[in-house]
């Protein structure tokens, strides 16, 4: 490691408050163990291990700017499979399946569509990990990949869209913080798309999450599970000027081999003109390590 790199990444006593400060002050959010529902994290499975994550979301959209002025409800089931390649590198394949109900203002019928959305393949690389003691850890990871045009009908962008981002995770006692920032280069997209961040304009996601370990207060030899309260801020800025931030309180139950999660997201900042606004997102999830 070069002196410059060592200065940046070598754990030192002086670096501790700096790392904590960065964790607390970083502008936006991100993790699999202590990972909130909709915010990435700088965690990954061990070498040769798999991590499966299933999420089902109910999404209610309104104020559609398209000529059809649609009310839209969606149920999206997303499968994400992650594999640990090395200690620092993992790969993830993600595939959403969507059932969409659209009610145009001009007609009494409901248009129903079911199909795959855009699948993605990504790599996550964690160059920095500082495990301070048996529990506390500070980590930084970079990720990048591409969304493939696998989406059918109105459920995908029909274009190859690369993305890249950075995630910072700190776990200090009962408190977990995640910050993530990512940018997606949209190379195609429909101007009347209904998938946030999937239109013809690029998308900048800025996410923050906080997890509080409700139970147990202290880990012990008998600990087989933990329950967390979670709070997320999930922001999406699109280069057409649209900006939206969802606040998402939730709960996470984590056992030794699986985890269950539930989150409700609702907008607290909404300046959206080019696509339907997000009114409500309810997420239920399941994770398993094998």
């Amino acid at each position: 490691m070069s002196p410059a790199c060592a200065l940046l990444f070598r754990p030192t006593a002086k670096a501790a408050p700096l790392a904590v400060g960065i964790a607390l002050l970083a502008p936006a959010g991100l993790a699999f163990g202590q990972e909130a529902t909709n915010t990435p994290a700088a965690t990954q499975p061990g070498v040769g291990k798999w991590y499966l994550r299933e999420r089902v979301q109910y999404i209610k959209l309104g104020d559609d700017p398209s000529p059809e002025d649609r009310d839209i409800d969606k149920i999206v089931a997303t499968t994400a499979l992650t594999y640990g390649i090395t200690r620092e590198l993992s790969t993830t394949f993600t595939l959403p399946l969507t059932l969409s109900f659209e009610d145009p203002a001009s007609s009494s019928g409901t248009d129903t569509e079911f199909g795959a959305g855009d699948a993605s393949l990504s790599l996550k690389w964690r160059p920095f990990q500082w495990d301070l003691n048996p529990v506390d850890s500070v980590r930084l990871a970079f990720f990048g990949g591409v969304e493939a045009p696998t989406g059918t009908g109105d459920l995908g962008s029909h274009s190859w869209d690369p993305f890249a981002g950075v995630v910072f995770t700190s776990i200090l006692g009962r408190h977990g913080f995640n910050q993530a920032l990512s940018y997606k280069f949209n190379t195609g997209g429909d101007e009347f798309n209904t998938v946030a961040g999937d239109g013809p304009d690029d998308a900048l996601r800025y996410d923050t999450s906080y997890l509080f370990r409700l139970d147990p207060a202290e880990y012990s030899a008998d600990t087989t599970a933990a329950t967390y309260l979670t709070l997320e801020l999930n922001g999406l800025y699109e280069t057409n000027g649209d900006n939206e931030i969802l606040l998402g309180p939730g709960i996470l139950y984590e056992a030794r081999t699986f985890a269950l999660e539930a989150t409700v997201g609702f907008p607290i900042v909404q300046d959206v003109d080019e696509r339907p606004e997000t009114d409500l997102v309810i997420t239920l999830g399941f994770r398993v390590l094998f």
Partner: peptide, 10 residues
Amino acid sequence: HGMSCPLCAN
């Protein structure tokens, strides 16, 4: 060091 959650520890 760093086993911050049950699923991680597994």
